[in-house]
Amino acid sequence: MSLETVIRSIFSTLFLASVIRISTPIIFPAMGGLIAVVTGVPNMALEGIMNVGAFVGVMVSAYTGNVWLAILAGIVAGVLMALLLGLFHIYFKTNLFIGGLAVNLMASGGTVFLLYIMTGDKGNSASVKSLSVPNWEIPFFKDIPFLGDVISGHPVFTYLAFLSVILVYIFLYRTRFGTHLRAVGENPEAATTLGIDVKKSRMIALAISGVFAALGGMNLSMAYLQFFQKEMAAGRGWIGIAAVHLGARKPLGVLFASILFGFADAISNQLGSLNIPSQLVQTIPYITTVVALAVFAIQQRQAALERMKRYQKEHLEAISANASKAE
């Protein structure tokens, strides 16, 4: 394929649709990470929880033949993993980073261990017949020429992901409990004096982030592909955390950051058909993440410097004003 066709394909409806589809498994963990971060317990186990969710969803769907039961089971498994981290961090004072890495280790080892027992294969679950979630043709929109092709016909998870951004926004900023969570994240001592149970709030925040991460994982194994694969999340949990930083911890910002990363991923998929070595093309999403984090960090730094300068200037003005008054 020539460069021209690739460029043309990037401006096609198919490509835009693929950006939406590929962003989904980043939006989910990013939203989960967001809720955990604003409550002051950055969930470093998102990656592992995604793997667990992906695995449990596939296996339960294969054994019960019921997609919705499978999704429920995946969510429960994700919540349990998140609560394991919460138990150790909040009640036994395990360092959050190390606890998160431990849960990730347990997830990647545990899923392969169980996969081997259940299917006799260590790489993927293709040998068992698992189900995938249905796609949704939006009744009216699907007939609109351009828009219909882009936004209609995705797996239901995709719509759930975009809906969840709105839900998370309402939850964090318009509900009593969400406000409590943010208070816990900003100043736990003050929250305690207001009668908020900090430990319980953090456990609940982690549990919610577990739900989102599990959904993100199942989106990979039950919508994007139709089987479970070893280390299926492939860094998306971490990219989700990067999206939380990049989106300045605001739901809408995090959504845009996730879509940016989804875009990079989709570009790398498109370029894969060119005559460029596939391994190098595959690094694009990860390099994008590093660059984005760097740009964001530099901006933050400059903003902080400017704030400081402004403050100093105001301070000096105030001093000189006082001095002139005194005269």
Binding site: F88, L105, M106, F113
Partner: peptide, 22 residues
């Protein structure tokens, strides 16, 4: 039994060792 069992054991040990309050 596959060798990935050791990762689960290690993860558990990691959590338990770093659990200051346990």
């Amino acid at each position: 039994v596959s060798r990935e069992l050791v990762f689960v054991i290690q993860a558990m040990v990691l959590l338990l060792v770093t659990a200051e309050r346990l």
